[in-house]
Amino acid sequence: MESTRNPQAVIDADTYSVRRTIHIQAPLDKVWRTVTEPALISQWFGQITLTGTGASALGTIGWPGERRVPIRVETFEPQSQVSYRWCNEEGPLPETVDEQRSTVFTFTLEATPSGTQLTVVETGFEHTSDPAQVMADHRGGWDGELDKLVALLERNA
């Protein structure tokens, strides 16, 4: 089966946010686990470690050849919504998530007759040193990472 084609992420410069809504031909519970369980997140996104579960779980996330950054689960509404706050600034990283140097990305899931609709919205780019550039980088990142999520879930559906 060929992976579902989805629209690309969009930037809203007025609200300093990046948004992408995709459809995945997989059941909601499977998509939920794949965006909340570290072992599954690490199969399509960055290598993540978390201590604790649910809201306030702390950890780090990183990609091969890049530094690991602090991450914290902000909200956790099972089968519906999860959000993560992570640091996005260049330079020395704080030990924990710095509210003034971070953005928040939220996954919202909704069951559909043929699978799951997932929307990611990342906000807080006004707190970065170069909002336009960071939003452009993350727009491209969400396109690539969520395409990997769709391919992983639909391949294993």
Rank of each mutant, 00 (worst) to 15 (best):
T96M: 09
R72E: 15
R139I: 09
P92V: 07
V134C: 09
C87G: 13
T112P: 03
S129K: 14
T96L: 12
G46I: 00
G144V: 03
P94V: 10
W44I: 04
G62P: 01
I71L: 04
W86K: 02
S102V: 08
Y84N: 02
T53F: 11
G59R: 01
E99F: 13
R68S: 04
L93E: 09
W86S: 07
C87K: 09
L118D: 00
Y84H: 06
W142H: 03
Y84T: 00
R67M: 05
P92D: 12
T53I: 12
L93Y: 01
T51F: 12
T96E: 13
G54R: 06
E74S: 11
Q100A: 15
T128C: 00
V134N: 08
T106Y: 00
N88M: 15
V121N: 08
I71A: 03
G144E: 01
S114H: 11
D130L: 13
V120R: 09
R67P: 13
I48Q: 00
N88E: 14
A136L: 10
A57M: 00
Q81Y: 12
T108E: 07
V97Y: 03
T60E: 00
W44Y: 00
F107W: 15
V97T: 09
W86V: 07
T123P: 02
G54P: 05
V120I: 08
P78Q: 01
V104C: 09
L50C: 01
E77A: 06
M135F: 06
I48M: 04
T75I: 01
V82W: 02
Q47G: 06
L109E: 06
G54S: 06
W86M: 08
A55T: 01
T108H: 09
V134P: 11
E95S: 12
E145Q: 13
E74Q: 13
T112F: 02
T49A: 04
D98S: 07
A132M: 08
A111W: 04
E90C: 14
L58D: 15
L93C: 00
G144Q: 05
H138Y: 15
G46Y: 05
V82L: 06
A132N: 10
H138Q: 15
E99Q: 12
P92K: 04
F105D: 08
P78W: 04
E95K: 13
S56P: 12
T128W: 07
H138W: 14
E89F: 11
E126D: 15
A111L: 08
H138P: 12
F45P: 07
